[in-house]
Amino acid sequence: MDEMTIKMIIAICYVVFAPLIGGLLDGIGRQISARMQRRVGPPLLQPFYDLGKLLHKDPIHVSPSQNFLMLTYLFFVILTGGMIFLGMDLLLAMFLLSTAVMFLYFAAVVTGSHYSAIGAGRELLQMVAYEPCVLLTCVAFYVVSGSFETADIISGNISPIAYMPGVFVAFVFILTIKMRKSPFDISTSHHPNQEIVKGITSEIGAKNLAVYTLAEWYETVFLMGMVAMFVINKNPWSILAAVLTAFVVYFLEILIDNSSARVKSELMIKLSWTVTLVAAGGNLLVLMFMFG
């Protein structure tokens, strides 16, 4: 098979299987959360039932442009993941992800609902909080492997994490922000009976909510893919270690989510920037000294 066919297969596999894995992870997450709270919790496949139900409802909107904005958001999220799994430029993929998030932001501000607008503003703050670390992570990968392309990053002799443990710590930290998990569920909340209702998703319902959920699943999958990238090297066995690492990180996110209460947005920025500067920045300084 030539390279093109392999890439096509990977792309199709990603588009088809990523939401399945994402949905399963969501189901597992709900069960783990339930056990932590001494509940039985929903069945493993509940996220899929929910999605199916949302898709069968009559489509609704508050502002008509929400519909196409949400679909565009989904499209660019999928594209971002595609670029990562196809071995393309990581930094470009991350920039594209910011563009995707912009469409979610637009879909929230066009509605006129103030809960939605507050959530949208806070979503931007979350972006400010995690963006520096995401960029520094890409830069660190580049310094270590000499390329921004994910295909080159995962084919090194030694796992990148050996060189960039500080960056890994910072990345896992901002992952909580990126995945909108407590204590950094600033822009939205798990329960609608809180002060900002559902934040950025307040006015997103039925089909649009299904689109949002799908985008979240894709996002979870490629974010975990990025976590795996820290571990993968030339040795095929490292993939197993990487999958394990991703599971551990995912479990950690759920644990943090269940054991902490939402903080104020300014504290979030302060915390994440400090961690980014100290852990990732310090690590990068050492790396440039080593590889420069």
Partner: peptide
């Protein structure tokens, strides 16, 4: 797609 009022 049906228009719904925003939650106020």
């Amino acid at each position: 797609s049906t228009k719904k009022p925003a939650y106020m």
